[in-house]
Design a binder for these strands. Sequence first.
DNA 1: TATTGTTATACTCTATAACTATA
DNA 2: TATAGTTATAGAGTATAACAATA
Lengths: 158, 158
Amino acid sequence: MDDAPSRGAAFLVTQLGTHCAAKFAVRAREIGLTPPQVGILGLIARSPGQSQQAVATALGLLPSRLVGFVDDLEDQGLLERVRSRTDRRNYALQLTEAGRRKLGEIGRVGREHEQDIFGNLTDEQHTELVRLLQRVADEQGLTAGVHPGFRSLNSEVC
Amino acid sequence: MDDAPSRGAAFLVTQLGTHCAAKFAVRAREIGLTPPQVGILGLIARSPGQSQQAVATALGLLPSRLVGFVDDLEDQGLLERVRSRTDRRNYALQLTEAGRRKLGEIGRVGREHEQDIFGNLTDEQHTELVRLLQRVADEQGLTAGVHPGFRSLNSEVC
DNA sequence: TATTGTTATACTCTATAACTATA
DNA sequence: TATAGTTATAGAGTATAACAATA
């Protein structure tokens, strides 16, 4: 008897989630980004002009951590810090043209990633899996744009 | 347009996996254990008498990390280090009676965890979800007893 | 010489708190 | 006085490498 105990859905999701996160991190690094930076670019693409505070809150990471990520994205020429006219304390973060191009790369990488992990499912199976996961995620309050995994586990559970 | 982009299965699995891991860590802590320690106790229950090297390899964590976990489990009286007669360099790790009782608690906590996350699915939906996840996990080579999340992401992907 | 378990050291990552400039 | 962004410091967690005991 060397079998693992029958794995429940929770164990399988945890195991596969860790696996997916690790594989995606590799793909993100290949285009010069960390996973949180992918989230930052996507958020600014959807809602341009937000302050760093707003981005930090939306993604569930500390403002002090955000600084370094934005520094790097700015160094790469993917976004700009534009001082707000009305309140010169904060910035309005904007994608550059290169940032919009990078967004296309992110999309390509994301599709490759999805195919890599779930490519052996039929379309029907894939659709059913997404439906079930979406339902559970909604019930667990994960619908919002806040990405777990960017924030610490401690702040997650308190 | 403030919607997140349609979330693929990979994103959902990553998001839910992180969420599940965090919630399980809380439940494990309530019975005095860390997630790796849960894995250690389960492995020794299934295959008693293994050396620390064997356990470390099976769970994908470094032998030097294992020492502290086993120290704590021994302090709690849940397992014993028994010197091997044939090779006095290594130990044969054995559960104590208290360790076997703790295993029952782990089972209870695991069922509560599963119910907490997936309790709103019908039995048919739950079964279908497990089937799909199991299939993907198998194809990704996650069938073995090696638990990702105990080892570092770096060693995972290289 | 090789291996098991252990310890010591260094490194990475993250949280906390202090600081500045604006308001 | 309060807030946005930043920097500095400290702490937790982990990997690497050195070590003693045994083979």
